[in-house]
Every structure is written in structure tokens, then in C-alpha cells.
Write a protein that binds this DNA or RNA. Structure first.
Lengths: 336, 336
DNA sequence: CCTATAATCAAAAACGTTTGCAACGTTTAT
DNA sequence: ATAAACGTTGCAAACGTTTTTGATTATAGG
């Protein structure tokens, strides 16, 4: 039905191998024949079957991005950066939503390597057991982990300076004169979030007059923020500043605080982490720690492409991105 | 290197064809041999090469979603619905960001059919010329258009009741007593946005005391909303209600109004369209027209799967989803 | 006991490419 | 003049499946 390389060969009176070489711009075919073949191919509207090509070359020119949920604006931004980089290199990108579900994650991984993807960009493997992680890295397909420092594993990684970011937040809140401080974060052992907390409390503890923040664990999303903020108001009504481990949690906290009649930043200052687009849209505009999401996605596929290039020889690569505080209007000096 | 069907055949002492049938659960292989083959395959950790399979079957078990930008929360939601449906059916989904750029869109389309995707879910083809559209539909791969009523073309479509939604907004604003009304929308001839505007002005004109809204065209995003709202305040400072054709534009408008010292909803009421997650997060929570984004994505791939199932015989399918007004706190009765 | 039928499997032909190797004619070096 | 080298092309094998066809056996019926 579709026109194949054989049709082009027959029509232009040469062998299929010559057509292949001509069309792929390989060395060793006369300029005249190449020209002729190209013309015929164009006339017949020939389009190579990449599946067939993939079978013999062993490469699919396809990457995969597996995130917990593309609706999370953080991942959407990363995805865009990744896809742009892939597109530029002539690669396509599969999208997978894992919900951080271990079984789903493994099923995806299986399917992806059955399709011979050239590389996988994964959000997190924290839900996976040690054995599953080994199984994954044993698949032999280049993999880079996002927002995860895994120095000793076979995986490459791309992440932000989470710990430094936490410290920056602490520094800022301290500078504004806050002493009663809380930290709202995700589940325990959440990788990068844990790091943020670590940097935050460490910096607070290192102050001239050390402060021990209240840290509450919950789910890393809007409802989680609402929930934790309510809990906080119940048990520690006198906090004047809150640092949330993600913007979404910060939004939730703001909602809960407003509903309780607290003014922001007048009564309580709120900080986030990520700097998603909405951070500048909400009211009040959120002061937060920016991490370069787009660039991180981009960098991840660049690593992937490098890894996929050199066949077996894959020493993992690691890349960490700087963060910066972007000051908006959700924080102010503590009233005297 | 990887273990192939031949290895399984050799190891279990049968022919490859038998292995294939056994593993695919086809008729005509003895229960004992099937059992044995399955056991061997499991022991060898055999994973079928889907590229090879795709070459002979002609199906890739892959769908493609091409949207203008996955960072748009509307598309993220659609994408999630689509991907979930695809996953359930054992399909993978490619993600493409077109930026509504015609050339990029065509390049994607080419690449996708070279990879033999089984179906394409496209955001819009409005940027494409007539000729390009024909070229696209001539590709022979099932395609469903999102948010586009294209009754006469070869494409299937999934969209929301845009016109009715616009009318609902008008009705609501009218009921609140507003008479000086503006509509902020996207570029002219933007398909679904045009329909929203149409329903909106029509309903307004049909009122007992007809009102002619001010309608301004701009870009369909946050900055566009900011921009248009500023323009509006300059030329029509006395409007008391604004209906934006998308939530993102509404957010922009809110920002501009607030910066100008207008209170919402006290001074001016604002409505959006889409009901993205943020709509309930921003302050004030946005009154908007909800469209079932997740379900629309889902429905789109269901259609795609049906189309892909029956080979050539593809009569286009059309599905339109109802919308509903969700009332929050960005609108109030016009002061007497 | 022989044949018709069904069940099970093996053999081989596809699917559409890429690619190593041989063949060929022409030029260059010896 | 002959051999070597080179540039251009064809031939055929490979990639890992599915699927069609055909062969072999077992089962049953007459």
C-alpha cells in the first residue's frame, strides 16, 4: 500500500541499497545517481518506514519521560524543556504518568524497553524497592533520574541545589526577623524534599540565636498544604512564617490561612519552592525559590542523547542546577 | 545480546512459530507445550521486540498527542486523560508541542506517520492551510481534533459546547444586573474561542434590554489578559463585568485590574472559561465555565482506538461535551 | 484396515530497512 | 603492461517478529 524503498529502487532503476545510501546521504554514491534517486523519491512521495529502520539499527529515535503526573506544573515545565531538546535532535518523546506507583512504574519500564526506547527520563525511583531499582538499571537502557541525587547507582541524575535552596529560605526568613517558623513538607524520605528540609533546619540552627522550626509532613500538593496549615494553626497559632517545600503546598497553606482570617503577609509570611508560573499569578504573588525546570528537562535529554550515542560505555553523568530566591509579596518583616 | 524468540525456541525445543503462538495465546498449540514454552520464556527473561512485531503487524501500539504547549494546564489535563485511556488499552503516547506553528505541526505529522503511530490526537489545525490539512488527512492515520468542530472534514472531533458556555456566561452576568460588559478573547478566527464569543454576544443581544459587549482580541494567555484588561480600562473605564475566553486570560485580567486598584468582585466582576485547577486556588477564586478536560482526552483516545481497530473503514466520529458554570467568588451583583 | 478429519507443529515467506561484501570499470602507480 | 587502488553499484544477509502454508501425527468413522 504505502510506497517502499523497493518502489523507489524499481522506479529509478537502481538497487535498494543504493537508494538507501543516496537518501541517507552516505558516502559512496555518485552525485548524479543521488540526485536522480532523490527526485524519484520525492515524486513518489516516499517516506521511510522508521519501524523497519529501527529493527536493523536497534535504535528507535524515541525517548521516554516518566513523571508522577503531567498535571503538576513543575513536570509540565520539565517536559517542555525535555521535548524541545528531543525535537531539536530529531527524537520523539513518550509520556508516562506513574503516580509514583511502583507497579505502574515497572510496567512502563518493561513496555519502554520492549519498544527499544533510546533513553528514559524518570521522575523518581523512590517508590521502587532495591531489587526493582537493580532490575531497572539492568535493563541496559540509559536512564537519568530527575531531582534525585543517586551518586552510587548506575543512573545519571539531574537535580537542583535543594539543600542550598532550603538554606536560602531560612536565611531570608531570619533576615526578616522571624523567630516562630514552620516548615511544611512532603512525605518522609521524599528525596529532594528531605534535602530542602535539611538545608532549612540546618541554617536555622546555625543562626546566632538558633531557632527550631516546626516541621509537618503531608502530601505534596494543594490539599496537603491546606491540611498542614490547618493543623499548624491548631497546634502552633503563633508562627509568623511558613516555608513550604513546594509552591503547590504553599498555595494550599495560603488558602487555609486566608480562610482562617489571617492576612498574608501581614499576619504570616509564606514561602514556596519551585517558582511555577502560577506563583506570580496568585494573590499575593508568592516569594519562592526558583529552580530552572525547563533547563533541567533540557539537560536531562542532552545527557540521555550522549549516553545513547556511545553504546555500552555509559559512565553515569550528574548535573546539578543552582537555585535562586525570587522575592515577591508573600513575605514581610515581622512586626516588632 | 538480548534474548530473542529464537533463543526461546531453541531452548524449549520447538519452532519459533510455536513460541510466537504460545506466547500470544493463539489457538493451535497444545496446552503442555504452551506451558513449557511460557516457563522457558520466563526463565530466560524473554521480552518480545515490539519494533520487530510492529514491522510485520503494521501497528505500533503508539498514539500521539500534539498540543500547542503542554505547560498550558488545560492541555496537561487533557493529556492526562488521554494517557490514562491509552495506558489502559496497552498503548503508549507520544507528546508533541507544536506552538501552533504550521511547519512544526507538519514536521511532527510526517515523523509520526513514519513511525507508524496508530492515531493522532491534535489540538488544532487552524494554523494549517487548506492544502496542508488535506495532506494531513491524506496520511491515512486516524486523527481526532480537539476543540474544533470540523463537520465536513475527514477528521473526527471532540469538543465542548463552547457556544452554550458563552451563552451561560452572558446569562449569569445579566442576572447579576450587569450592563457594561466586556469580552476578552484570543486571536480572531480561533475556532472554539470564536464560538464562545458568538454564544456570549448572541445571548447578550437577546436580552430584554439588549447589551452590546466590548470585545477585545489578544493572545490567549496570561500576558494577553493583562494587556487586554489594561487596554479596556483605558478606553472603557466604566465596565462592571468581564468575561474572558479562558481562565489564563482571566487571571491576567485580574492581575491588571488589581494593579490598577480595582477590587474584584466589588468594582468589577470577572469570569473565565475552562475551570483549570488554579481557578480555585487564585484569589479571588474564579467563577468560570467548566469543561470536562480529562474526559475529553479520554474520549479522544477511545475514538482513536476504535478507528485504529477497523482498518480502512473509518467514518469520522464526533463527540461534544456539556459545560457548566461553576460559581465562585469573582463575580457579584452590580451595585445599585 | 483404510481413509477422512482434526490437531499440532515445522518451514518458510513475509515486513522494510541497513550494511558488509563482492563485482565491476576506471584510473593511478609501478 | 600489469597490478594495485579507487569509486560506484549490486547482491544478499541480517534485524526479530507474525503468519501462511504444508507436513506429520493422532483420532475417529466406515
Amino acid at each position: 500500500m504505502a510506497v517502499t524503498i523497493k518502489d523507489v529502487a524499481r522506479e529509478s532503476g537502481v538497487n535498494v541499497s543504493t537508494v538507501s545510501r543516496a537518501l541517507n546521504g552516505e558516502y559512496g554514491v555518485h552525485a548524479d545517481t543521488r540526485e536522480h534517486v532523490v527526485a524519484v523519491a520525492q515524486r513518489l512521495k516516499y517516506r521511510p518506514n522508521r519501524v523497519a529502520r529501527g529493527l536493523v539499527t536497534g535504535r528507535s529515535h524515541t525517548l521516554a519521560l516518566v513523571v508522577s503526573d503531567i498535571r503538576n506544573p513543575f513536570f509540565a515545565e520539565v517536559a517542555r524543556g525535555a521535548e524541545d531538546a528531543a525535537y531539536r535532535a530529531g527524537y520523539d518523546m513518550l509520556l508516562c504518568n506513574s503516580d509514583l506507583d511502583a507497579e505502574k512504574q515497572m510496567r512502563y519500564a518493561q513496555s519502554l524497553m520492549e519498544k527499544r526506547v533510546d533513553g528514559i527520563l524518570m521522575n523518581s525511583v523512590s517508590a521502587l524497592s532495591k531489587k526493582q531499582q537493580e532490575q531497572l538499571s539492568g535493563l541496559g537502557v540509559p536512564t537519568v533520574l530527575l531531582n534525585r541525587t543517586a551518586p552510587r547507582s548506575a543512573f545519571s541524575t539531574v537535580c537542583a541545589e535543594n539543600e542550598a535552596g532550603g538554606a536560602m529560605a531560612a536565611e531570608y526568613l531570619l533576615k526578616l526577623g522571624h523567630r516562630k517558623i514552620a516548615h511544611l513538607t512532603g512525605p518522609r524520605h521524599h528525596g529532594n524534599m528531605t534535602e530542602r528540609a535539611k538545608g532549612f533546619v540546618a541554617r536555622l540552627a546555625a543562626a546566632r540565636q538558633p531557632v527550631r522550626p516546626e516541621v509537618l509532613h503531608g502530601t505534596n500538593d494543594f490539599p496537603g498544604g491546606v491540611d498542614l496549615a490547618r493543623k499548624l494553626m491548631a497546634q502552633n497559632p503563633d508562627v509568623t512564617a511558613i516555608f513550604a517545600a513546594s509552591d503547590m503546598m504553599a498555595f494550599g497553606a495560603i488558602r487555609a490561612l486566608m480562610e482562617a482570617g489571617r492576612r498574608i503577609p501581614d499576619d504570616v509570611s509564606v514561602m514556596g519552592f519551585d517558582n511555577v508560573e502560577l506563583a506570580s499569578i496568585v494573590h499575593p504573588p508568592l516569594t519562592t525559590i526558583h529552580q530552572p525546570k525547563y533547563e533541567m528537562g533540557q539537560a536531562a535529554v542532552e545527557i540521555l542523547l550522549r549516553l545513547a550515542g556511545r553504546g555500552e560505555h555509559q559512565a553515569p553523568e550528574h548535573r546539578v542546577f543552582g537555585v535562586e530566591l525570587v522575592e515577591r509579596q508573600s513575605c514581610m518583616e515581622r512586626k516588632a
